[in-house]
Design a protein around this nucleic acid. Sequence first.
DNA 1: TATTGTTATACTCTATAACTATA
DNA 2: TATAGTTATAGAGTATAACAATA
Lengths: 143, 143
Amino acid sequence: MEDIGFATALVRLSHFVQHTFSDVSREHELTPQQAQLLCLLIDGPVGMSELGRALHLEKSSLTGLTDRAQRRGLVARVPDENDRRACRIALTDEGVRLAWAVHEKVVAALENLGGELKPEARADLTASVVRLLMSADPALVRR
Amino acid sequence: MEDIGFATALVRLSHFVQHTFSDVSREHELTPQQAQLLCLLIDGPVGMSELGRALHLEKSSLTGLTDRAQRRGLVARVPDENDRRACRIALTDEGVRLAWAVHEKVVAALENLGGELKPEARADLTASVVRLLMSADPALVRR
DNA sequence: TATTGTTATACTCTATAACTATA
DNA sequence: TATAGTTATAGAGTATAACAATA
């Protein structure tokens, strides 16, 4: 049988998910980075600092990413009312549309893949992943 | 409890693995893309076309990536003896050293994370992931 | 004709360092 | 002083289209 080890399995799975995400992004004429930004904003506006942490990006990189998304009409900078230095990034209507489109297609592709597993194995896998993520950083799960 | 769904769990796990890989790459002064290239070559030279498929890159993108890795002394282009159009990309000694260093650190980080699970749950997770990948594309597992 | 890989070009992505403005 | 974000700059990553050489 296939014996590729725990870590290798996670790495290969990660590549597969990345490729799925990239393909879906391109179908909607988005770069994977832009699509990821949009999906992070789906639950509401987020400040630059928090976005930087979530995306693992330097603040200047995020400025550029945001600039390009803004230029394409996907997001807007909203002034933070409590801190005049800060701003929050919000989706435009077009941004919301694309964010949902990408999100749904990615989820559909992965759920479809999950159909290969018995419901029980699928639930076990989800629970194990959640436990792993919780131990690495609870923030990965919460949100 | 946390109920983030199957697809979401896979996406979050993928982000975590990516970030782990990026961090390790940077510790060795490599971009994630270069590190991934090196790790793919660890079992021996590979042709550009096959590399392109594995990395999901257009051939011209791969030419550039290879050029930069070659300029840094990490890989070399070896002529293909059976096809004078083709070449195979091989690791240099320095490339081998870095490829193993990155590979081992990433595996260590992920195995360490896996310590959170009981051996049984860990084996189940690995088996489920392998089954998912096999159904998506057996080449993801074989190699 | 089809395939392998490169070149030319134009963007996008990313980090570092220096900066402005507010806290 | 510290934090939030931008600007300037340089390099890396990527795709499209056109190309050369070989199969």
